[in-house]
């Protein structure tokens, strides 16, 4: 099947959109998901559209109050971004956990988002950031919240002729801390069994000004924990409160048994990771 393929290498977003519309081809960015899927015969396409030579879609920059990450930014450039280090360090933590350096040099954030795996590790942090995705086709662009974009395992709101060009989110207020934690079978090179992104902003008196919690691999799509966030909001952060909130997050998930872990293990994992994340960000441990 691979031998019938054509490869198109557009040099601009407009050209990529046009080819996509004309051929209905399969987009490839870093190829770290697509190439194994192609080998397993998991999609049919006569044309591959290689985005890796589109200029400027790999930049990470500030635009007013927003941080904008180009869809083609790879994990290595995320890991090395000073801007992200200062504002959303959890994204650097994620980038450093994806495969080895070989995978980090190829895999892109846009590919992770469009692939929409329940265990996609960039998704909990991006959900916690209330990120939006910018989708382009040959007629124009639209911006939608990531929470609407993700619809199910491997399913998104992307239309057949759309490309993801950017991921954007409001820059967190100064002093916001964030962390990404996950449970896997080994330290590196694994698919998350449970993951949690937590963000926390405290005022001078340890009162919670802003808190966000998102979980991965415990539901068909990564999810936020609105009840636990509401419980914490405005309260003084204590270990007892964290315990209560962590308990509450367990109910937000609907984990399943699979080869990587049982539902019970995942429920326990949620609590452990949320507790650990909040204790770490709150400086309580």
């Amino acid at each position: 099947m691979m031998h019938e393929l054509r490869l198109e290498t557009p040099r601009s977003l407009a050209e990529a959109s046009r080819i996509l519309k004309e051929t209905g081809g399969k987009v490839i960015a870093g190829g770290t998901d697509v190439i194994p899927q192609m080998r397993d015969g998991r999609f049919e396409a006569n044309t591959l559209i290689d985005l890796s030579r589109l200029p400027d879609l790999d930049t990470i920059k500030e635009e007013g109050d927003f941080i904008v990450i180009g869809a083609l930014a790879n994990y290595t450039s995320i890991r090395q971004s000073q801007l992200l280090q200062e504002t959303v360090p959890m994204l650097l933590e994620v980038a450093g956990l994806v495969g080895g350096l070989q995978t980090q040099n190829r895999g892109t954030i846009g590919g992770n988002v469009v692939n929409a795996s329940p265990a996609g590790d960039t998704l909990p942090p991006l959900l916690a950031l209330n990120a939006e995705v910018v989708l382009n086709n040959s007629d124009g662009e639209r911006t939608i919240p990531l929470s609407d974009f993700l619809q199910g395992p491997g399913q998104t709101a992307i239309a057949p002729h759309e490309l993801l060009s950017e991921i954007r989110f409001q820059k967190p207020p100064a002093g916001t801390k964030s962390t990404f934690l996950r449970l896997g079978n080994r330290r590196g090179m694994v698919i998350s069994i449970v993951s949690a992104a937590t963000m926390l902003l405290l005022d001078g008196g340890n009162k919670i000004e802003e808190v966000r919690i998102a979980l991965g691999a415990v539901a068909p799509i990564p999810i936020r924990c609105p009840e636990a966030e509401a419980l914490l909001q405005g309260q003084v952060l204590t270990e007892a409160l964290i315990e209560q909130a962590a308990e509450m997050t367990v109910k937000a998930g609907s984990p399943i048994d699979d080869v990587r872990g049982t539902a019970t293990y995942r429920q326990h994992g949620i609590k452990v990771l949320v507790r650990r994340g909040l204790l770490k960000l709150g400086g309580l441990r």
Binding site: L7, T9, G31, T32, I35, P36, D50, Q102, N105, R106
Partner: peptide, 13 residues
């Protein structure tokens, strides 16, 4: 100059 897995790069790329 960057390490990559040759099994996950296409010839056309």
């Amino acid at each position: 100059g960057e390490p990559v897995n040759a099994c996950l790069v296409l010839a056309g790329q």
